[in-house]
Design a binder for these strands. Structure first.
Lengths: 245, 245
DNA sequence: CGCTGCGTTGACGCCAATCAACCGATGTGG
DNA sequence: CCACATCGGTTGATTGGCGTCAACGCAGCG
Protein backbone atom coordinates (compact mmCIF):
# COMPACT_ATOMS: atom_id res chain seq x y z
CA UNK A 1 0.00 0.00 0.00
CA UNK A 2 1.70 3.17 -1.18
CA UNK A 3 0.77 6.35 0.60
CA UNK A 4 -2.12 8.12 -1.11
CA UNK A 5 -0.93 11.48 0.22
CA UNK A 6 2.14 11.80 -1.97
CA UNK A 7 0.07 13.51 -4.63
CA UNK A 8 -3.18 15.17 -3.73
CA UNK A 9 -5.80 14.68 -6.39
CA UNK A 10 -8.90 16.76 -6.79
CA UNK A 11 -11.27 13.95 -7.63
CA UNK A 12 -13.48 13.54 -4.64
CA UNK A 13 -16.33 11.91 -6.58
CA UNK A 14 -14.77 10.07 -9.43
CA UNK A 15 -12.66 7.31 -7.96
CA UNK A 16 -10.24 5.98 -10.53
CA UNK A 17 -9.04 2.39 -10.72
CA UNK A 18 -5.50 3.68 -10.47
CA UNK A 19 -6.17 5.17 -7.06
CA UNK A 20 -8.77 2.69 -5.87
CA UNK A 21 -7.84 0.91 -2.69
CA UNK A 22 -9.29 -2.25 -4.15
CA UNK A 23 -6.97 -2.34 -7.10
CA UNK A 24 -4.93 -5.18 -5.65
CA UNK A 25 -8.03 -7.35 -5.42
CA UNK A 26 -9.85 -6.31 -8.55
CA UNK A 27 -9.39 -6.17 -12.28
CA UNK A 28 -6.45 -3.72 -12.14
CA UNK A 29 -4.24 -6.23 -10.34
CA UNK A 30 -0.81 -6.33 -11.93
CA UNK A 31 -1.42 -3.63 -14.50
CA UNK A 32 1.22 -1.08 -15.39
CA UNK A 33 0.55 2.63 -15.00
CA UNK A 34 -0.34 3.29 -18.67
CA UNK A 35 -2.73 0.33 -18.71
CA UNK A 36 -4.31 1.57 -15.53
CA UNK A 37 -4.96 4.97 -16.98
CA UNK A 38 -6.71 3.47 -19.97
CA UNK A 39 -8.78 1.32 -17.66
CA UNK A 40 -9.75 4.45 -15.74
CA UNK A 41 -11.32 5.87 -18.86
CA UNK A 42 -13.21 2.66 -19.51
CA UNK A 43 -14.69 2.33 -16.06
CA UNK A 44 -16.41 5.66 -15.70
CA UNK A 45 -19.94 4.87 -14.58
CA UNK A 46 -20.89 3.85 -11.08
CA UNK A 47 -24.16 2.50 -9.92
CA UNK A 48 -25.84 2.36 -6.55
CA UNK A 49 -27.91 -0.67 -5.68
CA UNK A 50 -30.18 -0.44 -2.67
CA UNK A 51 -30.40 -3.30 -0.24
CA UNK A 52 -32.76 -5.89 -1.64
CA UNK A 53 -32.60 -4.51 -5.18
CA UNK A 54 -31.23 -6.44 -8.14
CA UNK A 55 -28.15 -5.33 -10.06
CA UNK A 56 -29.38 -7.62 -12.83
CA UNK A 57 -31.75 -10.54 -13.17
CA UNK A 58 -31.73 -13.76 -15.14
CA UNK A 59 -32.91 -13.00 -18.64
CA UNK A 60 -31.65 -9.41 -18.65
CA UNK A 61 -29.48 -8.47 -21.58
CA UNK A 62 -25.77 -8.57 -20.85
CA UNK A 63 -23.70 -5.48 -21.55
CA UNK A 64 -21.38 -4.93 -18.62
CA UNK A 65 -19.45 -6.56 -15.89
CA UNK A 66 -19.62 -5.03 -12.44
CA UNK A 67 -16.95 -4.66 -9.81
CA UNK A 68 -18.24 -4.38 -6.28
CA UNK A 69 -16.91 -1.17 -4.73
CA UNK A 70 -18.82 -1.22 -1.49
CA UNK A 71 -21.47 -3.47 -0.11
CA UNK A 72 -22.36 -7.10 -0.51
CA UNK A 73 -24.19 -9.19 -3.10
CA UNK A 74 -25.58 -12.63 -3.60
CA UNK A 75 -26.07 -14.35 -6.94
CA UNK A 76 -28.71 -17.01 -7.44
CA UNK A 77 -30.02 -19.22 -10.19
CA UNK A 78 -33.53 -20.62 -10.33
CA UNK A 79 -35.04 -23.73 -11.85
CA UNK A 80 -38.30 -23.67 -13.81
CA UNK A 81 -40.19 -25.03 -10.85
CA UNK A 82 -39.23 -22.13 -8.63
CA UNK A 83 -36.47 -23.76 -6.65
CA UNK A 84 -33.51 -21.50 -6.39
CA UNK A 85 -29.93 -21.77 -5.35
CA UNK A 86 -27.54 -19.10 -4.11
CA UNK A 87 -24.39 -19.59 -6.17
CA UNK A 88 -22.18 -17.07 -4.44
CA UNK A 89 -21.68 -14.05 -2.22
CA UNK A 90 -19.62 -11.17 -3.57
CA UNK A 91 -17.80 -8.46 -1.64
CA UNK A 92 -15.68 -5.44 -2.46
CA UNK A 93 -13.26 -6.00 -5.33
CA UNK A 94 -15.09 -9.02 -6.76
CA UNK A 95 -16.54 -9.16 -10.24
CA UNK A 96 -20.19 -9.80 -11.09
CA UNK A 97 -21.86 -10.65 -14.35
CA UNK A 98 -19.52 -13.09 -16.09
CA UNK A 99 -22.40 -15.52 -16.44
CA UNK A 100 -23.86 -13.22 -19.09
CA UNK A 101 -21.01 -13.49 -21.58
CA UNK A 102 -21.95 -16.91 -22.91
CA UNK A 103 -25.42 -16.06 -24.22
CA UNK A 104 -25.49 -12.25 -24.05
CA UNK A 105 -28.15 -12.65 -21.35
CA UNK A 106 -27.65 -13.03 -17.66
CA UNK A 107 -28.45 -16.47 -16.33
CA UNK A 108 -28.66 -15.53 -12.66
CA UNK A 109 -29.87 -12.75 -10.39
CA UNK A 110 -27.46 -10.50 -8.55
CA UNK A 111 -29.09 -8.94 -5.49
CA UNK A 112 -27.57 -6.47 -3.05
CA UNK A 113 -27.66 -7.66 0.55
CA UNK A 114 -26.88 -4.16 1.76
CA UNK A 115 -26.76 -0.76 0.12
CA UNK A 116 -23.97 -1.16 -2.37
CA UNK A 117 -22.04 0.53 -5.09
CA UNK A 118 -20.53 -1.04 -8.20
CA UNK A 119 -18.24 0.10 -10.98
CA UNK A 120 -19.76 -0.52 -14.39
CA UNK A 121 -17.39 -2.10 -16.90
CA UNK A 122 -18.84 -2.07 -20.42
CA UNK A 123 -17.88 -5.48 -21.69
CA UNK A 124 -17.38 -4.68 -25.36
CA UNK A 125 -14.93 -1.98 -24.37
CA UNK A 126 -13.19 -4.29 -21.92
CA UNK A 127 -12.68 -6.76 -24.75
CA UNK A 128 -11.37 -3.97 -26.98
CA UNK A 129 -8.95 -2.81 -24.33
CA UNK A 130 -7.81 -6.30 -23.46
CA UNK A 131 -6.87 -6.79 -27.11
CA UNK A 132 -4.47 -3.89 -26.67
CA UNK A 133 -3.05 -4.69 -23.27
CA UNK A 134 -1.78 -8.19 -22.60
CA UNK A 135 -1.70 -7.67 -18.86
CA UNK A 136 -5.35 -6.71 -18.76
CA UNK A 137 -6.27 -9.63 -20.97
CA UNK A 138 -4.30 -11.97 -18.78
CA UNK A 139 -5.81 -10.62 -15.60
CA UNK A 140 -9.33 -10.90 -16.93
CA UNK A 141 -8.75 -14.49 -17.96
CA UNK A 142 -7.37 -15.25 -14.53
CA UNK A 143 -10.46 -13.82 -12.89
CA UNK A 144 -12.79 -15.94 -15.02
CA UNK A 145 -10.69 -19.00 -14.35
CA UNK A 146 -10.68 -18.27 -10.64
CA UNK A 147 -14.46 -18.23 -10.71
CA UNK A 148 -14.43 -21.69 -12.32
CA UNK A 149 -12.04 -23.00 -9.68
CA UNK A 150 -14.16 -21.49 -6.93
CA UNK A 151 -17.24 -23.16 -8.36
CA UNK A 152 -15.46 -26.51 -8.34
CA UNK A 153 -14.71 -25.99 -4.67
CA UNK A 154 -18.37 -25.37 -3.99
CA UNK A 155 -19.23 -28.56 -5.86
CA UNK A 156 -16.84 -30.46 -3.62
CA UNK A 157 -18.52 -28.93 -0.62
CA UNK A 158 -22.04 -29.67 -1.83
CA UNK A 159 -21.21 -33.11 -3.08
CA UNK A 160 -19.23 -34.57 -0.26
CA UNK A 161 -19.35 -32.59 2.98
CA UNK A 162 -21.72 -32.86 5.89
CA UNK A 163 -23.55 -29.93 7.43
CA UNK A 164 -20.91 -29.02 10.01
CA UNK A 165 -18.09 -29.18 7.53
CA UNK A 166 -20.01 -27.04 5.07
CA UNK A 167 -20.70 -24.29 7.55
CA UNK A 168 -17.15 -24.36 8.89
CA UNK A 169 -15.75 -24.12 5.36
CA UNK A 170 -18.11 -21.28 4.59
CA UNK A 171 -17.08 -19.29 7.66
CA UNK A 172 -13.39 -19.83 7.02
CA UNK A 173 -13.80 -18.72 3.43
CA UNK A 174 -15.67 -15.58 4.49
CA UNK A 175 -13.16 -14.60 7.15
CA UNK A 176 -10.26 -15.20 4.81
CA UNK A 177 -11.76 -12.91 2.19
CA UNK A 178 -12.58 -10.30 4.83
CA UNK A 179 -9.09 -10.53 6.22
CA UNK A 180 -7.50 -9.87 2.83
CA UNK A 181 -9.62 -6.70 2.80
CA UNK A 182 -8.20 -5.57 6.10
CA UNK A 183 -10.92 -6.79 8.43
CA UNK A 184 -10.55 -8.87 11.51
CA UNK A 185 -10.16 -12.59 10.92
CA UNK A 186 -12.22 -13.39 14.01
CA UNK A 187 -15.16 -11.01 14.13
CA UNK A 188 -17.63 -10.75 11.32
CA UNK A 189 -21.14 -9.61 10.61
CA UNK A 190 -23.13 -11.83 8.30
CA UNK A 191 -24.82 -9.88 5.58
CA UNK A 192 -27.17 -12.71 4.65
CA UNK A 193 -29.98 -14.61 6.36
CA UNK A 194 -29.78 -18.20 7.60
CA UNK A 195 -31.92 -19.16 4.65
CA UNK A 196 -29.48 -17.65 2.16
CA UNK A 197 -26.56 -19.37 3.85
CA UNK A 198 -28.56 -22.58 3.73
CA UNK A 199 -29.32 -22.22 0.07
CA UNK A 200 -25.67 -21.64 -0.72
CA UNK A 201 -24.61 -24.64 1.35
CA UNK A 202 -27.40 -26.96 0.26
CA UNK A 203 -28.96 -26.99 3.74
CA UNK A 204 -32.23 -25.86 5.27
CA UNK A 205 -32.22 -22.75 7.42
CA UNK A 206 -33.02 -24.78 10.54
CA UNK A 207 -29.95 -26.90 9.99
CA UNK A 208 -27.81 -23.79 9.60
CA UNK A 209 -29.22 -22.38 12.81
CA UNK A 210 -28.71 -25.63 14.70
CA UNK A 211 -25.16 -25.93 13.44
CA UNK A 212 -24.36 -22.40 14.58
CA UNK A 213 -25.71 -23.31 18.00
CA UNK A 214 -23.66 -26.49 18.06
CA UNK A 215 -20.49 -24.61 17.15
CA UNK A 216 -21.24 -22.22 20.00
CA UNK A 217 -21.77 -25.10 22.43
CA UNK A 218 -18.49 -26.61 21.27
CA UNK A 219 -16.69 -23.36 22.00
CA UNK A 220 -15.73 -22.71 18.38
CA UNK A 221 -17.48 -19.37 18.11
CA UNK A 222 -19.94 -16.95 19.63
CA UNK A 223 -23.17 -16.23 17.83
CA UNK A 224 -25.33 -13.18 18.44
CA UNK A 225 -27.78 -12.97 15.58
CA UNK A 226 -25.65 -12.04 12.61
CA UNK A 227 -22.63 -11.16 14.69
CA UNK A 228 -20.10 -13.97 14.79
CA UNK A 229 -16.90 -14.12 16.77
CA UNK A 230 -14.65 -17.03 15.96
CA UNK A 231 -12.85 -18.20 19.07
CA UNK A 232 -11.25 -21.38 17.75
CA UNK A 233 -10.24 -21.04 14.13
CA UNK A 234 -8.11 -24.17 14.25
CA UNK A 235 -11.09 -26.09 15.52
CA UNK A 236 -13.06 -25.00 12.48
CA UNK A 237 -10.17 -25.93 10.23
CA UNK A 238 -9.98 -29.39 11.74
CA UNK A 239 -13.67 -29.83 11.07
CA UNK A 240 -13.19 -29.07 7.39
CA UNK A 241 -10.00 -30.95 6.70
CA UNK A 242 -10.08 -34.06 8.79
CA UNK A 243 -13.59 -34.98 9.83
CA UNK A 244 -12.37 -38.34 11.11
CA UNK A 245 -8.98 -37.57 12.66
CA UNK B 1 -23.09 -29.19 -42.67
CA UNK B 2 -21.57 -28.36 -46.04
CA UNK B 3 -20.45 -31.27 -48.10
CA UNK B 4 -16.82 -32.16 -47.41
CA UNK B 5 -16.45 -33.65 -50.88
CA UNK B 6 -16.55 -30.36 -52.80
CA UNK B 7 -12.80 -30.04 -52.43
CA UNK B 8 -10.72 -33.10 -51.77
CA UNK B 9 -7.87 -32.37 -49.38
CA UNK B 10 -4.79 -34.48 -48.97
CA UNK B 11 -4.43 -34.29 -45.22
CA UNK B 12 -5.18 -37.70 -43.89
CA UNK B 13 -3.23 -37.27 -40.67
CA UNK B 14 -3.29 -33.63 -39.77
CA UNK B 15 -6.88 -32.68 -39.13
CA UNK B 16 -7.29 -28.94 -39.25
CA UNK B 17 -9.80 -26.95 -37.23
CA UNK B 18 -11.14 -25.58 -40.48
CA UNK B 19 -12.09 -29.03 -41.67
CA UNK B 20 -12.83 -30.61 -38.30
CA UNK B 21 -16.34 -31.94 -37.96
CA UNK B 22 -16.41 -30.60 -34.41
CA UNK B 23 -15.82 -27.00 -35.41
CA UNK B 24 -19.43 -26.04 -34.75
CA UNK B 25 -19.12 -27.25 -31.15
CA UNK B 26 -15.60 -26.21 -30.36
CA UNK B 27 -13.38 -23.17 -30.25
CA UNK B 28 -13.70 -22.44 -34.01
CA UNK B 29 -17.43 -21.75 -33.73
CA UNK B 30 -18.33 -18.58 -35.60
CA UNK B 31 -14.85 -17.84 -36.89
CA UNK B 32 -14.29 -16.51 -40.40
CA UNK B 33 -12.11 -18.39 -42.87
CA UNK B 34 -8.94 -16.31 -42.32
CA UNK B 35 -9.28 -16.64 -38.54
CA UNK B 36 -9.77 -20.37 -38.92
CA UNK B 37 -6.59 -20.74 -40.91
CA UNK B 38 -4.61 -18.94 -38.24
CA UNK B 39 -6.15 -21.16 -35.62
CA UNK B 40 -5.11 -24.20 -37.66
CA UNK B 41 -1.50 -23.15 -37.31
CA UNK B 42 -1.86 -22.67 -33.59
CA UNK B 43 -3.43 -26.01 -32.88
CA UNK B 44 -0.89 -28.33 -34.39
CA UNK B 45 -0.13 -30.90 -31.73
CA UNK B 46 -2.40 -33.76 -30.83
CA UNK B 47 -2.14 -36.05 -27.90
CA UNK B 48 -3.43 -39.51 -27.19
CA UNK B 49 -4.56 -40.35 -23.69
CA UNK B 50 -5.11 -43.99 -22.84
CA UNK B 51 -8.13 -45.05 -20.83
CA UNK B 52 -7.40 -44.46 -17.18
CA UNK B 53 -4.48 -42.11 -17.84
CA UNK B 54 -4.45 -38.45 -16.84
CA UNK B 55 -4.27 -35.64 -19.35
CA UNK B 56 -3.15 -33.46 -16.45
CA UNK B 57 -3.27 -33.57 -12.69
CA UNK B 58 -3.85 -31.03 -9.97
CA UNK B 59 -0.57 -29.26 -9.33
CA UNK B 60 0.76 -29.71 -12.87
CA UNK B 61 1.96 -26.55 -14.53
CA UNK B 62 -0.53 -25.00 -16.90
CA UNK B 63 0.52 -24.32 -20.47
CA UNK B 64 -2.25 -25.44 -22.76
CA UNK B 65 -5.94 -25.92 -23.11
CA UNK B 66 -7.15 -29.15 -24.64
CA UNK B 67 -10.06 -29.77 -26.98
CA UNK B 68 -11.45 -33.28 -26.86
CA UNK B 69 -11.35 -34.75 -30.37
CA UNK B 70 -12.40 -38.28 -29.58
CA UNK B 71 -13.10 -40.09 -26.36
CA UNK B 72 -14.40 -39.10 -22.98
CA UNK B 73 -12.94 -37.47 -19.87
CA UNK B 74 -13.80 -36.75 -16.29
CA UNK B 75 -12.40 -33.90 -14.21
CA UNK B 76 -12.15 -34.16 -10.46
CA UNK B 77 -10.93 -32.08 -7.55
CA UNK B 78 -9.75 -33.45 -4.25
CA UNK B 79 -9.72 -32.12 -0.72
CA UNK B 80 -6.71 -32.45 1.56
CA UNK B 81 -8.32 -35.33 3.40
CA UNK B 82 -8.58 -37.43 0.26
CA UNK B 83 -12.24 -36.88 -0.51
CA UNK B 84 -12.73 -36.16 -4.14
CA UNK B 85 -15.45 -34.88 -6.34
CA UNK B 86 -16.04 -35.35 -10.05
CA UNK B 87 -16.71 -31.86 -11.37
CA UNK B 88 -17.59 -32.76 -14.94
CA UNK B 89 -17.56 -35.16 -17.86
CA UNK B 90 -16.21 -33.92 -21.18
CA UNK B 91 -16.88 -35.25 -24.64
CA UNK B 92 -15.83 -34.40 -28.19
CA UNK B 93 -15.64 -30.69 -28.89
CA UNK B 94 -15.43 -29.65 -25.25
CA UNK B 95 -12.52 -27.75 -23.73
CA UNK B 96 -10.39 -28.94 -20.82
CA UNK B 97 -7.89 -27.10 -18.66
CA UNK B 98 -9.41 -23.69 -18.06
CA UNK B 99 -9.00 -24.22 -14.32
CA UNK B 100 -5.26 -23.77 -14.79
CA UNK B 101 -5.37 -20.19 -16.04
CA UNK B 102 -5.94 -18.59 -12.66
CA UNK B 103 -2.78 -19.81 -10.94
CA UNK B 104 -0.72 -21.22 -13.84
CA UNK B 105 -1.22 -24.63 -12.22
CA UNK B 106 -4.03 -27.05 -12.74
CA UNK B 107 -6.37 -27.40 -9.81
CA UNK B 108 -8.04 -30.62 -10.89
CA UNK B 109 -7.28 -33.93 -12.55
CA UNK B 110 -8.47 -34.72 -16.06
CA UNK B 111 -8.66 -38.46 -16.63
CA UNK B 112 -9.63 -40.29 -19.82
CA UNK B 113 -12.53 -42.70 -19.35
CA UNK B 114 -11.75 -44.33 -22.69
CA UNK B 115 -8.87 -44.11 -25.13
CA UNK B 116 -9.03 -40.52 -26.24
CA UNK B 117 -7.42 -37.91 -28.38
CA UNK B 118 -7.14 -34.19 -27.70
CA UNK B 119 -5.97 -31.14 -29.63
CA UNK B 120 -3.35 -29.19 -27.73
CA UNK B 121 -3.92 -25.44 -27.68
CA UNK B 122 -0.90 -23.58 -26.29
CA UNK B 123 -2.51 -20.96 -24.11
CA UNK B 124 -0.01 -18.14 -24.54
CA UNK B 125 -0.45 -18.39 -28.28
CA UNK B 126 -4.21 -18.54 -27.97
CA UNK B 127 -4.08 -15.30 -26.00
CA UNK B 128 -1.83 -13.77 -28.65
CA UNK B 129 -4.14 -14.82 -31.44
CA UNK B 130 -7.27 -13.70 -29.61
CA UNK B 131 -5.74 -10.24 -29.33
CA UNK B 132 -5.69 -10.15 -33.12
CA UNK B 133 -9.04 -11.71 -33.87
CA UNK B 134 -12.10 -10.38 -32.11
CA UNK B 135 -14.22 -13.36 -33.07
CA UNK B 136 -11.79 -15.79 -31.51
CA UNK B 137 -11.52 -13.66 -28.39
CA UNK B 138 -15.27 -13.47 -28.15
CA UNK B 139 -15.71 -17.20 -28.67
CA UNK B 140 -13.13 -18.04 -26.04
CA UNK B 141 -14.79 -15.77 -23.51
CA UNK B 142 -18.15 -17.37 -24.28
CA UNK B 143 -16.71 -20.81 -23.66
CA UNK B 144 -15.29 -19.81 -20.27
CA UNK B 145 -18.57 -18.14 -19.35
CA UNK B 146 -20.51 -21.21 -20.43
CA UNK B 147 -18.41 -23.27 -18.06
CA UNK B 148 -19.33 -20.91 -15.22
CA UNK B 149 -23.01 -21.15 -16.09
CA UNK B 150 -22.78 -24.93 -16.29
CA UNK B 151 -21.15 -25.03 -12.86
CA UNK B 152 -23.99 -22.95 -11.45
CA UNK B 153 -26.42 -25.50 -12.82
CA UNK B 154 -24.53 -28.27 -11.07
CA UNK B 155 -24.68 -26.29 -7.83
CA UNK B 156 -28.45 -26.05 -8.21
CA UNK B 157 -28.58 -29.78 -8.73
CA UNK B 158 -26.34 -30.58 -5.78
CA UNK B 159 -27.91 -28.04 -3.50
CA UNK B 160 -31.59 -28.61 -4.02
CA UNK B 161 -32.46 -31.80 -5.87
CA UNK B 162 -33.18 -35.26 -4.58
CA UNK B 163 -31.54 -38.41 -5.89
CA UNK B 164 -34.07 -39.21 -8.62
CA UNK B 165 -34.10 -35.68 -9.92
CA UNK B 166 -30.31 -35.57 -10.01
CA UNK B 167 -29.97 -38.74 -12.01
CA UNK B 168 -32.77 -37.75 -14.38
CA UNK B 169 -31.17 -34.35 -14.96
CA UNK B 170 -27.82 -36.02 -15.52
CA UNK B 171 -29.20 -38.42 -18.12
CA UNK B 172 -31.08 -35.68 -19.95
CA UNK B 173 -27.96 -33.54 -20.04
CA UNK B 174 -25.89 -36.41 -21.40
CA UNK B 175 -28.36 -37.35 -24.11
CA UNK B 176 -28.76 -33.76 -25.15
CA UNK B 177 -25.03 -33.35 -25.62
CA UNK B 178 -24.80 -36.65 -27.43
CA UNK B 179 -27.69 -35.69 -29.66
CA UNK B 180 -26.03 -32.44 -30.69
CA UNK B 181 -23.11 -34.62 -31.77
CA UNK B 182 -25.32 -36.70 -34.00
CA UNK B 183 -26.00 -39.62 -31.67
CA UNK B 184 -29.33 -41.10 -30.77
CA UNK B 185 -31.24 -39.22 -28.08
CA UNK B 186 -32.54 -42.46 -26.60
CA UNK B 187 -29.68 -44.98 -26.58
CA UNK B 188 -26.43 -44.30 -24.82
CA UNK B 189 -23.46 -46.09 -23.36
CA UNK B 190 -22.19 -44.71 -20.11
CA UNK B 191 -18.47 -44.22 -20.12
CA UNK B 192 -18.20 -43.91 -16.37
CA UNK B 193 -18.84 -46.15 -13.37
CA UNK B 194 -21.73 -45.82 -10.95
CA UNK B 195 -19.25 -44.48 -8.45
CA UNK B 196 -18.15 -41.69 -10.80
CA UNK B 197 -21.74 -40.79 -11.56
CA UNK B 198 -22.40 -40.77 -7.83
CA UNK B 199 -19.44 -38.53 -7.13
CA UNK B 200 -20.61 -36.06 -9.76
CA UNK B 201 -24.16 -36.09 -8.42
CA UNK B 202 -23.29 -36.05 -4.73
CA UNK B 203 -24.64 -39.56 -4.20
CA UNK B 204 -23.21 -42.94 -3.23
CA UNK B 205 -22.86 -45.60 -5.88
CA UNK B 206 -25.54 -47.77 -4.26
CA UNK B 207 -28.02 -44.93 -4.53
CA UNK B 208 -27.18 -44.45 -8.20
CA UNK B 209 -27.65 -48.15 -8.83
CA UNK B 210 -30.94 -48.26 -6.94
CA UNK B 211 -32.23 -45.22 -8.77
CA UNK B 212 -31.39 -46.77 -12.13
CA UNK B 213 -33.35 -49.84 -11.07
CA UNK B 214 -36.26 -47.72 -9.94
CA UNK B 215 -36.33 -45.86 -13.26
CA UNK B 216 -36.39 -49.22 -15.01
CA UNK B 217 -39.24 -50.45 -12.84
CA UNK B 218 -41.13 -47.24 -13.56
CA UNK B 219 -40.73 -47.83 -17.30
CA UNK B 220 -38.61 -44.75 -17.87
CA UNK B 221 -35.62 -46.60 -19.28
CA UNK B 222 -33.91 -49.94 -19.77
CA UNK B 223 -30.61 -50.59 -18.04
CA UNK B 224 -28.15 -53.25 -19.07
CA UNK B 225 -24.90 -52.53 -17.31
CA UNK B 226 -23.65 -49.36 -18.96
CA UNK B 227 -26.10 -49.53 -21.83
CA UNK B 228 -29.10 -47.29 -21.29
CA UNK B 229 -32.15 -46.95 -23.47
CA UNK B 230 -34.47 -44.14 -22.55
CA UNK B 231 -38.06 -45.11 -23.23
CA UNK B 232 -39.85 -42.18 -21.63
CA UNK B 233 -37.93 -38.97 -22.01
CA UNK B 234 -40.89 -36.83 -20.98
CA UNK B 235 -41.18 -38.86 -17.81
CA UNK B 236 -37.60 -37.99 -16.98
CA UNK B 237 -38.24 -34.35 -17.76
CA UNK B 238 -41.23 -34.29 -15.46
CA UNK B 239 -39.08 -35.70 -12.71
CA UNK B 240 -36.59 -32.86 -13.07
CA UNK B 241 -38.93 -29.93 -13.56
CA UNK B 242 -41.95 -30.52 -11.43
CA UNK B 243 -41.26 -33.05 -8.69
CA UNK B 244 -44.61 -32.27 -7.11
CA UNK B 245 -46.97 -31.79 -10.05
C1' DC C 1 -49.19 -1.90 20.22
C1' DG C 2 -49.52 -5.59 17.08
C1' DC C 3 -47.32 -6.93 12.91
C1' DT C 4 -43.73 -8.95 10.29
C1' DG C 5 -39.34 -10.98 9.38
C1' DC C 6 -35.66 -13.52 11.19
C1' DG C 7 -33.83 -16.82 14.23
C1' DT C 8 -34.00 -20.76 17.63
C1' DT C 9 -35.42 -25.10 19.32
C1' DG C 10 -37.93 -29.54 19.70
C1' DA C 11 -40.32 -33.77 17.89
C1' DC C 12 -40.72 -36.68 14.31
C1' DG C 13 -40.11 -38.87 9.74
C1' DC C 14 -37.85 -39.84 5.55
C1' DC C 15 -34.24 -40.19 2.23
C1' DA C 16 -29.96 -41.58 1.33
C1' DA C 17 -25.67 -43.49 3.63
C1' DT C 18 -23.78 -47.47 5.56
C1' DC C 19 -22.82 -52.24 6.02
C1' DA C 20 -23.07 -56.52 3.96
C1' DA C 21 -23.99 -60.29 0.85
C1' DC C 22 -24.12 -61.78 -3.66
C1' DC C 23 -23.74 -61.90 -8.85
C1' DG C 24 -21.84 -61.51 -13.43
C1' DA C 25 -18.17 -60.06 -16.43
C1' DT C 26 -13.47 -59.87 -17.17
C1' DG C 27 -8.89 -61.13 -16.77
C1' DT C 28 -5.01 -64.13 -15.35
C1' DG C 29 -1.89 -67.69 -14.38
C1' DG C 30 -1.15 -72.52 -13.44
C1' DC D 1 -9.22 -74.78 -19.94
C1' DC D 2 -10.53 -73.93 -15.60
C1' DA D 3 -9.82 -72.12 -10.85
C1' DC D 4 -9.46 -67.97 -8.93
C1' DA D 5 -9.14 -63.07 -8.11
C1' DT D 6 -10.81 -58.61 -9.14
C1' DC D 7 -13.88 -55.13 -10.40
C1' DG D 8 -18.26 -53.21 -11.19
C1' DG D 9 -22.93 -53.63 -10.22
C1' DT D 10 -27.27 -55.00 -7.69
C1' DT D 11 -30.02 -55.63 -3.74
C1' DG D 12 -31.39 -55.98 1.20
C1' DA D 13 -31.36 -54.49 6.16
C1' DT D 14 -30.42 -50.99 9.13
C1' DT D 15 -28.89 -46.46 10.65
C1' DG D 16 -28.46 -41.73 10.98
C1' DG D 17 -28.36 -37.02 9.38
C1' DC D 18 -30.96 -33.69 7.81
C1' DG D 19 -35.60 -32.10 6.34
C1' DT D 20 -40.19 -31.12 7.85
C1' DC D 21 -43.52 -29.28 10.80
C1' DA D 22 -44.56 -26.59 14.54
C1' DA D 23 -44.15 -23.53 18.44
C1' DC D 24 -41.94 -19.81 20.30
C1' DG D 25 -38.75 -15.62 21.11
C1' DC D 26 -36.93 -11.41 19.76
C1' DA D 27 -36.02 -7.14 17.26
C1' DG D 28 -37.49 -3.55 14.29
C1' DC D 29 -41.16 -0.75 12.77
C1' DG D 30 -45.37 1.45 11.28
Amino acid sequence: MTSPTTSIRIEPLKVACSSCNLRELCLPLGLSQPDLERLDRLVDARRHVARGAALFRAGDGFHSLYAVRTGFFKTCVSAEDGRDQVTGFQMAGELLGMDGISTDRHSCDAVALEDSQVCVIPFAELEDLSREFTDLQRQFHKIMSREIVRDHGVMLLLGSMRAEERLAAFLLNLTQRLQSRGFSPSALVLRMTREEIGSYLGLKLETVSRTFSKFQDDGLLEVKQRHIRITDQDGLRRLVNGPNC
